[in-house]
């Protein structure tokens, strides 16, 4: 499966624990949709993290033809949870929408708020799993967060994206060793493992290549 094939409904929700790589997946997916010639927008619905969010990539995304929906004060000093002003476009806009949602029950409360809109517009929600993320590294820990998000949003997950990585230190072994853990999570959660990602500097069979778009400080 490719990343692009995840977007089968009006809204694709990318969710999962903090630091699992949701923003990276959401931005890569939006770029892939735009490249396929479809109208696409990405919404930064992270109401928890003050920095390192999809708003960081707004200029690059706009250039690629991806509409961005970003809270007015993202990356400023206004420290309040806020939604983008054109939020309803997520459900009513032309083409496809990708939602990047903050990753636990609190972050996912924003989904619960618009529960009916997601159902009416049609949505697919995916859980991003990183085997190397502290606390949620074990499938059991990740499952707890998965259930928390389900409860807070009232929405269903349709699959798992195995995005196991160690940032710049990711190797072939990092990626391959994590697969059994993702399979175990899939079994526990009762939803399919749809794809495994690998950073673009590695060439690994049966994985989907992801470009790291995280803001670099040094």
């Amino acid at each position: 499966m490719t990343l692009r094939e995840l977007a089968t409904e009006k809204v694709t929700v990318i969710s999962g624990p903090y630091g699992s790589g949701k923003t990276n997946i959401a931005v890569n997916l939006a770029m892939d949709i735009a490249k396929s010639g479809k109208v696409c927008r990405i919404a930064d619905l992270d109401i928890v993290n003050p920095y390192f969010r999809s708003a960081d990539n707004a200029k690059m995304l706009e250039k690629m033809g991806v509409q961005t929906m970003i809270p007015l004060f993202a990356n400023t000093n206004v420290d309040i949870p806020a939604l983008p002003p054109n939020y309803q476009m997520l459900f009513t806009g032309e083409g496809y929408s990708v939602a990047d949602v903050g990753g636990d029950g609190d972050g996912a409360a924003v989904l619960g708020l618009s529960h009916d809109d997601y159902i009416e517009a049609g949505y697919k929600m995916y859980f991003v799993y990183n085997r190397y993320r502290y606390i949620t590294s074990e499938p059991e820990g990740a499952l707890e967060v998965l259930n928390e998000i389900k409860r807070a949003s009232g929405l269903e997950f349709h699959g798992i994206i195995n995005n196991s990585n160690l940032g710049a230190e990711t190797t072939r072994e990092t990626v391959l060793n994590a697969i059994p853990y993702a399979e175990r999570l899939s079994e526990l959660a009762g939803i399919p493992l749809l794809l495994t990602t690998a950073p673009d500097w590695l060439d690994i069979e049966n994985t989907v290549t992801i470009t790291d778009i995280t803001k670099k400080l040094f």
Binding site: G19, Y132, R133, Y134, L166
Partner: peptide, 14 residues
């Protein structure tokens, strides 16, 4: 074993 952490989390865990 190496795992990914935010700086804030690592302070707490340490």
């Amino acid at each position: 074993e190496k795992l990914l952490m935010k700086g804030n989390e690592a302070i707490a865990e340490a």
